[in-house]
């Protein structure tokens, strides 16, 4: 796990991380010139995945509050963004902001209740799950915006950054989500470097000790939840805008919560780069299996036209990682090199 951003030598580390981020982002930004258009959709999905993972990591990796209900925040972002554009023609950027504010408010409110009643560990995880499921069920029957049937984002003529709509295959979508993800990572790095970051880690390590040292535990836990929820909502709002459709299952289903957890777990919980690496591993899986099944080799012919293989692969991956690399891919690499260098 990364040390707090409080020490004297973390300044250089922060600088290095930001440098890696900028260089990496610049390199990734050239992908649309290299990749065939079909692969670009995969790249966008990886980045949505990554953004969710980065967000989950803030609350559950650095904050130590294991969430099994990030679907709540994702769904609020998706529905806020979707509703505003479909019914009122409001720009998705504003939708993102509104969704982020809503999700943060929801996260802070439910978080306050959960912390007030001192839920921890499994109980906390189950409570987050219950809150997400409640929103899911409410969305299935919420009349005012006919949420249950799903929202279809209308297609516009031409291309507009303000409305975040471009002709099919435009690389602009890719650059937009790349920018959002990079911002989220940068925000995480900045948070960790700040005084608040030190407090957040201290609280994760020992709440009571942190409190006895003058750190207002509740406030910083809620801050962490709020930031994480807001980032997740941005991913949700972008999702609607990109796929032009949302329904209660896609927004609030428990699969969404699992998707938010996986990148960090695979890549490395509580590390800056872990969620990005995890997303890059997971994102293409469903396309690999889809390609495999569309034209299966003889040995797998019986699988033709069946679904489920992609989830089987990432479930198996999840099991292997948990058992063999409990610190995730990046976490394991880091420990390996750390041991090598001393």
């Amino acid at each position: 796990m990364t040390a707090a951003g409080t020490g004297t030598h973390t300044g250089t580390r922060t600088g290095r991380q930001l440098l890696v981020l900028v260089i990496g982002a610049a390199a990734v930004a050239t992908l649309p010139f290299i990749l065939p258009p079909a692969q670009e959709a995969v790249a966008v999905r990886i980045l949505i995945f990554a953004l969710m993972g980065v967000a989950w990591n803030v609350m559950s990796g650095y904050g130590g509050m294991f969430s099994f209900g990030h679907a709540a925040y994702f769904g609020l972002g998706a529905y806020a963004g979707g509703y505003l554009i479909v019914r009122h023609g409001v720009s998705p950027w504003i939708g993102m902001a509104v969704g982020a504010a809503l999700a943060a408010a929801f996260g802070v409110t439910t978080g306050f209740l959960a912390f007030r009643y001192r839920l921890k560990g499994a109980y906390f995880a189950l409570a987050t799950f219950a809150f997400a499921e409640m929103l899911h069920l409410l969305a299935l029957s919420f009349e005012p915006i006919e949420a249950a049937a799903g929202l279809n984002v209308p297609l516009l003529q031409g291309s507009s950054w303000w409305m975040l709509q471009f002709p099919p295959g435009s690389p602009n979508y890719f650059w937009a989500i790349l920018a959002l993800t990079v911002l989220a990572v940068a925000a995480t790095i900045a948070l960790l470097r700040s005084k608040s970051g030190g407090y957040v880690i201290a609280i994760r390590e020992d709440e009571q000790a942190a409190s006895s040292l003058g750190i207002p535990v509740m406030r910083y836990k809620l801050l962490t939840v709020g930031v994480s929820a807001a980032m997740t909502a941005v991913a949700g709002a972008f999702y609607v805008q990109y796929y032009l459709y949302i329904n209660p299952d896609l927004a609030f289903g428990s699969a969404v919560s699992i998707q938010a957890i996986l990148p960090s777990v695979i890549g490395g919980i509580g590390t800056i780069w872990g969620p990005l690496i995890g997303a890059a591993v997971l994102g293409p899986l469903s396309d690999v299996t889809a390609t495999l099944l569309r034209d299966p080799p003889a040995a797998l012919a019986f699988l033709e036209g069946r679904s489920g293989l992609d989830v089987i692969l990432y479930a198996a991956l999840l099991i292997v990682i948990v058992l063999a690399l409990p610190k995730g891919v990046y976490g394991a690499l880091r420990s390996y090199f750390a041991r090598g260098s001393t």
Binding site: I312, A315, P326
Partner: peptide, 23 residues
Amino acid sequence: SSLANQLLLTLGIGLLIENVLLL
């Protein structure tokens, strides 16, 4: 080991079984 690890392991097993059934 940690709560998260055990939870994720059973989650993985559950997803695996469910999707093997689906397949």
